[in-house]
Design a protein around this nucleic acid. Structure first.
Length: 280
DNA sequence: ACCCAGGCGGGCG
DNA sequence: CGCCCGCATGGG
């Protein structure tokens, strides 16, 4: 059970840097300096992966891991399906996954995301890839660019990142890249539990609670992380707090109590439900 | 022209 | 602690 359309479009890292062709269920994204070009085929109860060629093939394992195809969706749905709002959202977006991405890739995407909109985040991330990434070739020698690593971006200049459209986030990207280069190895954080991980991530300049939760959720697979952005706040208030203005910490507590270890999974449905039904 | 966007850091009381 | 402000930029 995989719904690629909702998974791709629901403002996750793939949304910001990959290419999706819904009519053919084709997805193109980069992993390191390789291009992955694949198609998903819906079967009765599973999803089949077809790589377009040897050249643009990833390991099947990478795809399964990124889309979390081995998760027990039924159990997760059972646990978060606590009320009519959630059951509606689950019905609408059945098969939507919270993807598991590279930690630095996730950090970069969500540094760019702050006080920003999806269309522009996508544009800025693409500009950064083009300016700092390595040129790589996909199917029919189509040109793609890799996502620049922290080492590369640590020597970027504010001026160049501003030209990519990063705005005031430029210094966050540079400072965080430098911090990863000098003081913190994102790979070594994988063994940490959610709370410890979040504290470590927040040492980076420009990474506050919300961005740290996004990185924990989509870069480390901590499904209990519950990022609260303007849409989640608004939607939670509407669905669970009688439309009343509610403090972020109260919303977080509510989500923790209600959805526990799968709060972040629930969060993706709430976020997307809000955006899909409340407009924009 | 005005408001908003998957927020954060810093300063002030 | 809590509150408030500025921040770059493009699209509605």
């Amino acid at each position: 059970m995989l719904d690629v359309w909702h998974t791709f479009n629901s403002a996750q890292p793939l949304t910001f840097h990959a290419d999706y062709y819904p009519e053919r269920s084709r997805l193109v994204y980069t992993v390191g300096t390789r291009v992955t070009d694949l198609r998903f085929h819906k079967e009765e109860s599973s999803t089949k992966i077809e790589f377009l060629s040897e050249k643009t093939k990833a390991s099947e394992k990478e795809v399964v891991r990124r889309f979390r195809l081995e998760d027990d969706m039924k159990r997760m749905y059972d646990e978060i399906n606590t009320d009519k709002n959630m059951s509606d959202a689950i019905k609408r977006y059945s098969g939507m996954r919270v993807t598991l991405n590279d930690p630095w890739e996730t950090t970069l995407c969500f540094l760019v995301s702050q006080l920003n909109n999806v269309k522009r985040i996508r544009k800025i991330v693409r500009n950064i890839k083009k300016r700092y990434g390595k040129k790589i070739y996909g199917e029919d020698n189509t040109v793609y660019y890799s996502i620049p690593d922290a080492e590369t971006l640590s020597s970027a200049t504010v001026k160049d990142l501003m030209e990519c459209g990063a705005g005031f986030r430029a210094r966050y990207i540079i400072n965080s890249a430098k911090y990863c280069r000098d003081n913190m190895n994102l790979e070594s954080l994988r063994s940490l539990k959610y709370q410890e991980l979040k504290e470590e991530l927040m040492r980076m300049d420009g990474v506050g609670e919300k961005v740290a939760d996004c990185i924990a959720l989509m870069g480390y697979g901590k499904l209990e992380a519950f990022p609260i952005d303007v849409w989640v706040k608004r939607t939670m208030e509407r669905l669970y707090f009688e439309g009343k203005n509610t403090r972020i910490r109260d919303i977080r507590k509510f989500a923790e109590d209600r959805w526990g270890r799968y709060a972040g999974f629930a969060q993706q449905y709430i976020f997307w439900y809000g955006r899909d039904t409340l407009g924009r």
